[in-house]
């Protein structure tokens, strides 16, 4: 089953084409890596998929809803986590989770038990009443991810979720991503780290607003006849104009 489908999705700002006619399909439960250099158009493309930005032209559906016609319905079925913002620092762990549960419409009665269950699974029950600002960055990001899928969305969009985190913590973070994927949540993730690209089921690489490659990491490496995703990325990005 396809949860994301786009057909020649395009976004222009004036004469600048940020996203240039991208077409792709993402399967339910898939971990889809969305790679590209800074300025390649990843964020703009992701915003269109999240219903935050209207496409200039092209079509697309996310979680079965039309990007152009029903962005509000899309919002109910997705989760979103950005690198920039993890959680409110001046709220306690459970207050943050309740807030995000609340605004995504998790029924009031279910919120409390879900928080407890989640924190128990993460082994984090002791910190339930801790202010988020007192937590280490790695934990904040794990919690932030948990908050973004707290309402069990069909798809979760992760915008460079592991920026500034050490490799060990990144590894733990990816275990959470696998868990979510196993539960049937589609994970759409942008990243700068090429080792992370290897963890994805399939990746797309954007250059100058276009998707230049889309396949599993294994196939991409054999197509380009290289050893690592790093080299695949380097070969493609070398020709970019919008660095």
């Amino acid at each position: 089953m396809k949860v994301i489908e786009t057909d020649k999705l395009t976004k222009k700002f004036g004469s600048f084409t940020a996203v240039d006619s991208i077409s792709m399909e993402v399967e339910k439960g898939e971990i889809f890596g969305f790679l590209g250099a800074n300025g390649a158009g990843k964020t703009t493309a992701m915003r269109m998929l999240c219903g935050l930005s209207t496409p200039t032209s092209g079509k697309g559906t996310v979680a079965g809803f039309d990007i152009n016609k029903n962005p509000e319905d899309i919002k109910k079925n997705i989760g979103y986590m950005s690198q920039k913002f993890a959680l409110y620092e001046d709220l306690k762990v459970w207050e943050n989770l309740r807030l995000f549960g609340g605004i995504y419409g998790v029924p009031q009665k279910e919120i409390e038990p879900r928080i407890d269950k989640l924190l128990t699974t993460l082994g984090f029950m002791d910190e339930k009443n801790t202010m988020v600002k007192a937590l280490p960055l790695g934990w904040k990001q794990k919690l932030s991810f948990s908050a973004s899928i707290f309402h069990e969305p069909k798809i979760v969009f992760l915008d460079e979720p592991t920026g500034g985190v050490d490799p060990a913590t990144r590894r733990q973070f990816w275990e959470l991503i696998y868990d979510a994927s196993d539960r049937g949540i589609t994970v759409f993730v942008t990243t700068h780290y090429m080792d992370e690209a290897e963890y994805c089921d399939r990746v797309s690489i954007m250059v100058d607003g276009k998707i230049e490659a889309l396949d599993s990491p294994k196939n991409l490496k054999s197509t380009f006849n290289v050893e690592s995703m790093d080299e695949v990325f380097f070969q493609l990005a070398r020709g970019a104009k919008n660095e």
Binding site: C50, G51, L52, E72, K75, K76, I78, Y80, M81, S82, K84, F85, Y88, F100, I103, Y104, G105, F157
Partner: peptide
């Protein structure tokens, strides 16, 4: 500035 506005705007609120 925090980026939380973006996260809230993605929500169905």
């Amino acid at each position: 500035e925090l980026g939380s506005m973006e996260v809230i705007l993605v929500s169905p609120m």
